[in-house]
Amino acid sequence: MELVAIFISAILINNFVLHYFLGICPFLGVSKRIDSAFSMGLAVTFVMTITAIVSWIINHWVLIPYNLDYLQIVSFILVIASLVQLVEMFIRKTSPPLYQALGIYLPLITTNCAILGLALLAALKNYSFIETIIFGLGSGIGFTLAIVLMAGIREQLDMADVPEVLKGPGIALITAGIMALGFLGFTGMLK
């Protein structure tokens, strides 16, 4: 039951984009088309899950036994950077069109605060190994959900009669704000 709560909470209530406001860069940058937004979501989900696992291992097997908690940020960054490189190579090999579509945002997952935020939050909340995996997976799905919803709205917005001054980033930010307000409504779901 605890696991389900963590999972639901990571997707809806404590959504990384719309609750913590982490990972806004790809959220706005890659949300112009649903298919590339979905791919970005999958890439982030993958990186998040693997990061959660590896950072838990490093945290609990290396950092905590040697009292090196203060190295968390540095070592997590190391994990994230390596994993993103790995994912980048993998996508480039297997799906060049996807590599093209994600463009600069793929290497930017490295500096995506959502990933580091995930690793640090999981360490902060003292999750067990299984809980951490569920937390990472849920957060990734939450990110995917947010970015795909955003892309769907923005595809519609292309055809809408948006005032000249708000075209582009302006209306995107307003949309994101309203979405965040909407997700605030989930807060009461879990006590």
Binding site: V62, L63, Y66, L68, L71, V74, S75, L78, S82
Partner: peptide
């Protein structure tokens, strides 16, 4: 200890990469 730890971690990841 922290130096060796970070060094080993970095080495492991770079070999993997």
């Amino acid at each position: 200890i922290p130096l060796i730890t970070m060094g080993v971690l970095g080495l492991l990841f770079s070999v993997g990469l």
